[in-house]
Design a protein around this nucleic acid. Structure first.
Lengths: 342, 342
DNA sequence: CTGTTAGCGCCTTCAG
DNA sequence: CTGAAGGCGCTAACAG
């Protein structure tokens, strides 16, 4: 990379001091109009670009926000990131994205990357393994704003953005009950994740409300590895008394289940109904369409980023750990109600 | 954000100079073992994090590579980015991602962000609008390595990573011909995109090879806006002499077509066969499964990043503008051959 | 082995 | 209005 144009180059060519150039460039009021023009013109001509590295160092803030997500496989996180990116760039922030590959160590490493890059704030969604939160506490200790979203924990006192997982699961399960289903299974996520627990709770409470028993053998919690999901679905279908409906923790799982059920020649939804969670791309593609709990994915990214920027722009002492709970919506499609195609 | 621990803090507490601290931290050989230990221990205790902003400034390199992609809607680019991220982080680079939202202006703005952040190199895939390449030429002019991938152009002399679009399209079309189709339509991308042109060429050449006429009314080029795709598919189906097969520029388009065709009650593949391009998530979900040209998506990201790192680590004068062409694979599913389910 | 001295490019007082 | 000087945190010669 060759020498990049700096304010000194401009200053020299114009025979003025670099301070003046700096002032002209940053729009400082007290610069003579002619000088400003001259600087701006020359800068354009040389296609000068401000060196953010230097600006960041001297202002000791990077105008960068970090985002740590557990995976990039489902469409969920990319969409959240899109939303985050929109809000961030409106405020002149750039975004540094790290992906933890669902492992705790990678998450810790990513946290260090964020710190090393002096991000002004960070958005994180936990891996399914994360049980220790020391690496996150570090942010708070250093007074770096942190906002958790989607995969959150309550061991650490920061703002969070989530959807109402409990209510979503409740609605999903109740919908199955009202559709006449009697034995509703639940393919749950790992108990380490708060959202798994909330969704499980919603499922159980819906059963209770309608006087249904909670049957342990119909509740399977697994690690979200789709390959593994196949095994559990097969197991459920092979039960002496198999379920007549399945509520899955997320859409990839539900879609996998749907395909297996179809491959077995069982009729959906009559013999086996399926409901997912998220409304991923794909849910409307399968046949029958997958009934699911839609989340405002992009909005999650937008809200979380807004919350983060709010913190960045206020005194650490005034930070409040609000939890923003966004609404979900039950999307009924053919996997739970006969006759609906898409 | 409160004061972060610096090497000066460590130096003062240990009563040594900051250079020594720096040397101990960076693993410089000539530091007494006791000193090194003391520094490392204290650093750990204070949880000191190197300030990349400062390191970058003084080394005048950011150890960051930029990635500019046109969109985040299909699963293609997120997966490419995953691959890029893997290779980059193996070499200690972080990744700055910008998304151009398929608009030229955003792409130019993103290029400026990259420049301002003094990325050490940049990976770009063009928007469908981009016809002027001045903003990219700027990178080369400043001797900042640039690698184009997927949506490339040949107006600018840099390394490129692509799949064999021509051959992929050829295989797709020939497959339809060999399946007995007579009137094969092509929903093409905008001619501004090189990949649209190559895929169109492959389609035409396959027809020619087998002695089929090229029927203009069966070739529609459009802007990749899926909403618009619906209109064109409908148009094709309503033709006095409708096609009996469709080769679409990408999977989202093909999937949309598939759904419309099914909704009309036409049988797939008998009355109308469909082939896509990419093997997006979703292609194996629909019924019948979508026959498509699979690309090594993640590999594209890995190879492009490797090429970029190679350039970063060599003299600008020795850069060669290789074009790496990765192989595609025809995945035959039920949308083109009777009897295959997934 | 370790301290001193200069920058890296920019912004920000403090004086004119 | 503008110039000079200092500092952001760290690395890299250059002396000892």
């Amino acid at each position: 990379m060759k020498h990049q144009v700096t304010i000194i180059d401009i200053a020299r060519q114009l025979n003025i001091s670099k301070s003046t150039v700096s002032r002209a460039l940053t729009g400082h009021p007290r610069v003579k109009e002619v000088t400003r023009r001259a600087v701006l013109d020359l800068a354009g001509e040389l296609d000068y670009q401000r060196n953010m590295l230097a600006i960041n160092l001297s202002s000791s803030q990077s105008r960068t926000i970090g985002i740590i997500v557990p995976e990039f496989v489902t469409s969920f996180f990319p969409i959240v990131i899109m939303g985050a990116q929109e809000v961030a760039s409106e405020s002149g922030y750039t975004v540094l994205i790290c992906q933890s590959n669902e492992t705790y160590e990678a998450e810790v490493a990513n946290a260090r990357v964020m710190l090393a890059n002096r991000v002004d704030g960070v958005l994180v969604s936990l891996t399914r393994e994360t049980k220790n939160f020391e690496h996150l506490a570090m942010f708070t200790r250093k007074a770096i704003p942190l906002v958790l979203f989607n995969r959150v924990c309550y061991d650490i006192d920061v703002p969070k953005v989530v959807v109402d997982d409990y209510e979503g699961a409740f609605k999903a399960t109740e919908h199955l009950i009202l559709s006449g289903k009697q034995r509703i299974a639940h393919l749950a996520g790992p108990p380490s994740l708060y959202i798994s627990r909330k969704r499980l709770e919603g499922y159980k409470d819906a059963l209770r409300k309608h006087g249904f028993p909670i049957i342990d053998e119909l509740i399977i919690s697994y690690d979200l590895n789709v390959e593994r999901a196949k095994i559990y679905v097969t197991y459920l279908l092979d039960l002496p008394q198999p379920p007549d409906a399945l509520f899955a923790i997320n859409d990839p799982t539900a879609l996998e289940a749907l395909l297996i059920i179809k491959a077995r020649g069982l009729s959906i939804p009559d013999e086996m109904a399926v409901v997912g969670f998220s409304n991923d791309y794909g849910s409307s593609l399968v046949e029958p369409g997958l009934t699911t709990i839609a989340q405002p994915t992009r909005e999650i990214g937008r809200v979380a980023t807004q919350l983060l920027l709010d913190q960045i722009n206020t005194e650490a002492s005034t930070w409040k750990s609000v939890t923003r709970v966004l609404k979900t919506e039950l999307l009924i499609r053919g996997s739970s109600v006969q006759g609906l195609t898409r």
